[in-house]
């Protein structure tokens, strides 16, 4: 795997983490959205990661051994956690008994997820930087 391919793997991870950050941002923004176009309250979005082959499929050697495995977001699916019901008869979205269904987004766990995403992003930036340092060090050979 060439040095530039490591950068591609790092880029794919950065892309994936950015997409995850987007879903977290959406979740936090909609933490109190009690009504959507589909009727019920906002449903928390979850991301899953899957490995993906980044190599150019046209290169023959890449089909043999040089697999460039990066990462991508596999799917963004709706969480099946239970909704939270709060008694608030004055709320416009309250049901017949006066209960309002709030989204199944837990702000604390979203904050924790956000920290994980930030750290993962940072780690991948470090991978890119360290790869660059290695490359430049290799160019110093024989100086």
């Amino acid at each position: 795997m060439g040095i530039l391919n490591i950068l591609r793997v790092g880029a794919s991870a950065l892309n994936a983490q950015r997409l995850r950050m987007e879903t977290i941002a959406t979740n936090i923004a909609n933490v109190q959205s009690t009504k959507t176009d589909d009727g019920g309250p906002y449903v928390k979005k979850e991301t899953t990661f899957v490995p993906t082959d980044l190599s150019d499929s046209k290169v023959f050697s890449s089909m043999l051994s040089e697999k460039v495995e990066g990462v991508k977001v596999g799917e963004i699916r709706n969480s099946d956690k239970p909704f939270e019901k709060v008694y608030d008869p004055g709320h416009p979205d309250a049901d017949g008994e006066g209960y309002v269904t709030y989204p199944n987004v837990n702000l604390l766990s979203e904050m924790a997820d956000m920290m994980v995403a930030t750290r993962a992003y940072e780690a991948n930036v470090n991978v890119v930087n360290t790869t660059k340092e290695m490359y430049l060090k290799a160019l110093d050979i024989g100086k």
């Binding site: 790092g10 880029a11 950065l14 950015r18 890119v128 490359y135 160019l139």
Partner: peptide, 16 residues
């Protein structure tokens, strides 16, 4: 980050 990585790639290959 994609922009930065493209710049880094160009920088590294230029160094080489």
């Amino acid at each position: 980050h994609n922009t930065m990585i493209s710049i880094e790639k160009a920088d590294l290959s230029y160094h080489l």
